[in-house]
Design a protein around this nucleic acid. Structure first.
Lengths: 339, 339
DNA sequence: AACGGCATAGACAACGTTGTCGTATCGTGG
DNA sequence: CCACGATACGACAACGTTGTCTATGCCGTT
């Protein structure tokens, strides 16, 4: 156990504990010589301030909560954690993760209690938690700062980080077009899902810009799960004039399309190009590898955490509707090729 | 912000703060009437003890660190977190996650600093961190309690939780045998990976018990990645007398085998049965669904966290070589059938 | 009646840091 | 040479809890 305290450092340096405190916190009012002496001692003894004492006194916990819901892909949450962790480390914060299993649980012993315990200097919220009005209300009632990652609405409610799903889908569609594909199918996501909607619109816009008439039967419904991709793919490939390329609104459904193709004995990308959206682990591990849009999830979480930390001390933080946009990019793998 | 403190409760209840403290901590020495009155008041005012003050005074942080390395599957880490979170919630602990990106980083600003800050009542270590001697040394130097999940060696070094990989692989092999398969291929994992070795041994034992001679070419090398599964599958299916069933040492490689089969125009499970190990998200999302061994990852992490929390206060905790074994089960999906 | 023991409760000092305010010391301008 | 402001530092009281020690009341026993 790290038994040395600020008092030990102060004694050995021949200064008061307050001076040591000043050095630790990079406050001014310490002469260069004194500062150096104290810093050396801290280094030498391997002293680390006790975080509990620190937060008790300063009313800051140096703790950031990352709130998420366990839906579908572990991948998303995992990437968020990686990014948030990077930012936390840099700023000397720790990261506590808080899981909300279902909206009802928010008021149970879970989230609310955790928030009330007086921890957390701020929160990073990920979808779909960041769009849950009940949870937002609880958080705001506690007076906590928070930043949202890829929120779907209430953009003015807090700072947030996002990427342009629509433009990304547009680019991907344009890419297929440039490869010579003209009959391009699209597999939609859940109806109430904002990202899914934006992706569909990107597809539609790109097609329209190129003077292509999107036939209604080219757009098949899906729910982001692989099985729905299989069914939708089956449906599209069963058309009298089937598409030569299929753009699924996420990777999982694209995987389903690969299965559908294999069921019909079609080779990918020879007979059919398939592209997805997300660049999750599935995209790499499928065969052939999936051409898809890379979402910078870790980077978005990192940026969000950064914004949060920078905003501490600013009382008007919550109303500052800062937003940061990050870039996607298209990852070319084996599942798409020119016609 | 939760501005009410133990003092407010004490005043309103007409008792001393110490008595309130006793109620909170379920200590004895409080009369039933007093206890009830205090409890009501706590409930009514929504009071939650300030964790910083608590840990400063009690030298307990009510914080548990989950240490992991970001390798391969998000799924594993995700499940670990789910399980550990359950145990933490029950016991009123919070969960801080600490990522070790590579062994070298352990001594960098990352893990060691985090540990020194005097946080963490204990740690839960997951593979492969739990087998890293350097990291274990750092942790032990801090005098921290820890429990390992599925360690691969040094079993006497700390309490741990595990499942019987060998028996599971044995059962799975027996199952294929009972379905009528006689030529059963096996795709191995990385050479230095303990679980992989145990799974192979389970397969070998089961075959041997049934009097089957395992031809060397039935065992193909792999590295737990899907591509290696594809190659190994290709190799096995290219044999003059190809196996009728392939058992891959993990799900990712089993996915590769599915691709290999589809490349050769073989239908699964009609022409070939394929089974895996892990029951990760791939197993559900593949087509056909993968028959596989379900590893109770979340449950193992939960048990480990429980052991950790129960062990607090026991100074000889680390040397208590308690171990808890959890059960696997086989999940039947569409990728295997009788011959 | 006196006493010991138990159940219940409170007073007070930690815990290790930061915030507030006070005080030397020093250089500088008048 | 003095007044004065800046600079560098320290004393001391928070912060909200728990740990330790002590006090009170009540019961049963002798």
């Amino acid at each position: 156990m790290s038994d040395i305290t600020i008092v030990d450092i102060a004694k050995q340096a021949g200064v008061s504990i307050k001076t040591v405190s000043r050095v630790i916190n990079r406050e001014e009012g310490v002469g260069p010589a004194t500062r150096a002496r104290v810093e050396d001692l801290i280094e030498k003894l391997g002293y680390r301030p006790n975080v509990s004492a620190r937060s008790l006194s300063s009313r800051r916990s140096y703790l950031i909560g990352v709130v998420f819901m366990r839906v579908g892909a572990y991948h998303y949450v995992g990437e968020v954690q990686v990014g948030a962790m990077r930012a936390c480390r840099r700023a000397g914060y720790h990261m506590v993760i808080e899981q909300v299993d279902d909206p009802g649980q928010a008021r149970g012993p879970g989230l609310e209690q955790a928030l009330k315990a007086g921890r957390f200097d701020g929160l990073v919220l990920t979808p779909p938690v960041c769009d849950d009005p009940e949870i937002l209300a609880i958080i705001e009632a506690q007076g906590l700062s928070y930043v949202r990652v890829a929120p779907d609405r209430d953009f003015g409610r807090s700072p947030y980080v996002f990427m342009d799903d629509q433009q990304a889908a547009h680019d991907m569609t344009a890419r297929l077009w440039d490869l010579g594909h003209r009959r391009i199918g699209f597999i939609d996501g859940p109806a109430d899902h904002g990202s899914a909607r934006r992706r569909r619109e990107g597809y539609m816009t790109a097609m329209a810009e190129r003077g292509a008439r999107v036939r209604p039967e080219w757009i098949a419904p899906g729910d982001f799960m692989p099985l729905s991709g299989l069914e939708a793919g089956d449906q599209l490939l069963g058309l009298p004039e089937p598409p030569t390329a299929i753009f699924a609104a996420n990777d999982s459904m694209a995987m389903g399309v690969l299965s559908a193709a294999s069921k019909r004995g079609l080779s990918v990308p020879g007979d059919l190009s398939v592209v997805g959206f997300d660049d999750g682990p599935l995209a790499e591990s499928s065969w052939p590898g999936l051409t898809t849009v890379h979402q910078p999830i870790a980077e978005m979480a990192e940026a969000a955490t950064e914004m949060l930390i920078e905003g501490f001390g600013d009382p008007r933080f919550r109303s500052r509707t800062a937003a940061r946009q990050l870039d996607y990019h298209i990852v070319e793998r084996g599942s798409s090729t020119s016609r």
